[in-house]
Design a protein around this nucleic acid. Structure first.
Length: 199
DNA sequence: CAAGTGATTAGC
DNA sequence: CTAATCACTTGC
């Protein structure tokens, strides 16, 4: 069994680099009876803290909801949106530096039957190919907000790595409100992977 | 393509 | 206190 990705990985200054390097990492969440539910990250988006109009922390906004984004790198920020869905983010950099990476797409690896049950969905391709979908499949909810990725509730492991020739870069999705920042190429995905949320 | 859904927040 | 908003998904 692979070891947890270490703290240093998350503490790097360049959040865009972390967002790209997260592609290929395995997200692991223990299910019941020692069962592992896991999947490989294939799509991410970076939100660059106070300077990014698309970020919840733009301009240094700090509220009960986004507090976890100000934690030390290697914690997770989970929030609820549209009255139905959770979104999973990885916090990067030092304390009080609210840069985060949204996990938008994952390829199922372990615990696929459990994912199917939770999603009420038979087609594997539709289990975790979106930020809201994957939170349902992994049963990630508000109780994960602020969790440490070096703890035992949720963590990342090395799995595969992709070179720049296998990674695509583009604008982020669903942030039409972001003014000058809408077109920033801060979304990364594994080229051609079928678990990317949009082609 | 539009509705659903409810926590959160900004603005009175 | 109230109303608008929203880093999405599904089904028409």
């Amino acid at each position: 069994m692979s070891e947890k990705v270490d703290r240093q990985f998350y503490l790097r200054e360049d959040t865009l680099e972390v967002a790209a390097d997260l592609l290929g990492k395995l997200i692991v969440v223990p299910g019941a009876a020692g069962l592992r539910v896991s999947g490989m990250i294939v799509e991410t988006e970076a939100y660059l803290g106070v300077i990014d109009r698309a970020a919840h922390t733009y301009g240094g906004r700090r509220t009960p909801r986004n507090e976890a984004a100000y934690a030390l790198g290697g914690h997770v920020y989970v929030f609820f949106v549209y009255g139905m869905y959770y979104q999973l983010n990885v916090v990067c950099g030092p304390v009080d530096h609210p840069h985060v990476v949204l996990i938008r797409g994952v390829e199922p690896v372990e615990g696929i039957d459990l994912m199917r049950e939770r999603r009420g969905e038979m087609k594997e391709r539709n289990l975790t190919s979106g930020p809201g979908k994957l939170c349902i499949a992994f049963r990630i909810d508000r109780t994960f907000n602020g969790a440490d990725l070096l703890g035992d509730q949720i963590w990342l492991e090395d799995h595969r790595s992709f070179g720049t020739d296998q990674i695509s870069v583009g604008k982020r999705i669903g942030i039409d409100y972001a003014g000058e920042d809408v077109d920033n190429p801060w979304r990364f995905w594994v080229t051609g992977n079928e678990f990317v949320s949009r082609k």
